[in-house]
């Protein structure tokens, strides 16, 4: 079927998410909580767009809106721009020192002197990506805590979690770089827990925690752990392939 986004005709499969269709057609819709690997959160609200469906206009969340009819979409109507501006003002009030938020608010012309207080050292926008990543991985070391305006993300009791393997997937997936990982003298500290980093057998660089490697070993069901960092793994694979080609 066909839908129209900002005047452009786009092919669409029934049930496909609107954001996906837009991106495929190089139409920009801003997002913060969207990740192709972990889709469907719909928490940041930045991707809202206006649609016209059988004569009715409404505002929908494009990352979770399944296209069912041949609709017309407006990704930056005045109403949408106004909503995004307010959302970014709210996010800026929450995390005024965050670079990602600051960049976005400048883009939408939100002034930097706002009448709201607080938000000194906050960088988290509670999008939920970190929690979902940890869940998908199978560790579930962190979760959302409380509700309403006191909601936050943390480990149980704010203490080092027995389930945390220090892999840093949460930090990797965070859209605002809000999760702190510190690496110092072969020790990685994340979520208040310290991990000894294992050195690569080939290049000697500390690259992963023991817990991380043990976790993947168990998941893959293999007997031994390969102590190679990502780049060395690639290099070793490259060498192996080269050997094969040379022999052939």
């Amino acid at each position: 079927m066909k839908i129209i986004i900002d005047g452009i005709v786009c092919e669409a499969e029934k049930g496909e998410m609107l954001l996906k269709i837009a991106r495929r057609n190089h139409i920009h819709i801003p997002t913060l909580c969207h990740s192709d690997a972990l889709p469907g959160l719909g928490s940041c609200r930045l991707c809202v767009v206006e649609i016209l469906d059988r004569g009715r206009r409404s505002v929908v969340t494009s990352c979770i809106y399944p296209v069912k009819n041949e609709i017309e979409v407006f990704t930056h109507s005045d109403k949408i721009k106004s909503i995004r501006r307010n959302l970014l003002m709210l996010l800026y009030a929450r995390a005024p020192q965050n670079e990602t938020i600051d960049r976005l608010r400048r883009e939408y012309e939100v002034p930097d002197n706002i009448r709201f207080s607080g938000g000194k050292n906050e960088h988290c926008i509670l999008c939920g990506l970190c929690v979902k990543a940890c869940q998908e991985l199978g560790t579930s070391a962190i979760s959302t805590v409380n509700r309403g305006i006191t909601k936050k993300v943390s480990t149980p009791y704010d203490e080092p979690s027995a389930q945390c393997i220090g892999c840093g997937s949460c930090a990797y997936v965070c859209p605002t770089n809000a999760i702190k990982i510190e690496e110092h003298n072969g020790v990685r500290t994340i979520w208040n827990k310290e991990f000894q980093l294992v050195r690569c057998a080939r290049c000697g660089k500390p690259f992963a925690t023991m817990e991380q490697l043990e976790f993947s070993r168990k998941k893959l069901g293999s007997d031994h752990i390969e102590l190679l960092c990502e780049s060395c793994k690639k290099a070793v694979t490259g060498e192996k392939l080269r050997d094969i080609y040379e022999r052939v």
């Binding site: 719909g42 940041c44 930045l46 929450r94 959302t144 409380n146 509700r147 305006i149 006191t150």
Partner: peptide, 12 residues
Amino acid sequence: EESCGKCVACRE
């Protein structure tokens, strides 16, 4: 206090 707190528009 009763909002679930998930989305930016409502919570913030």
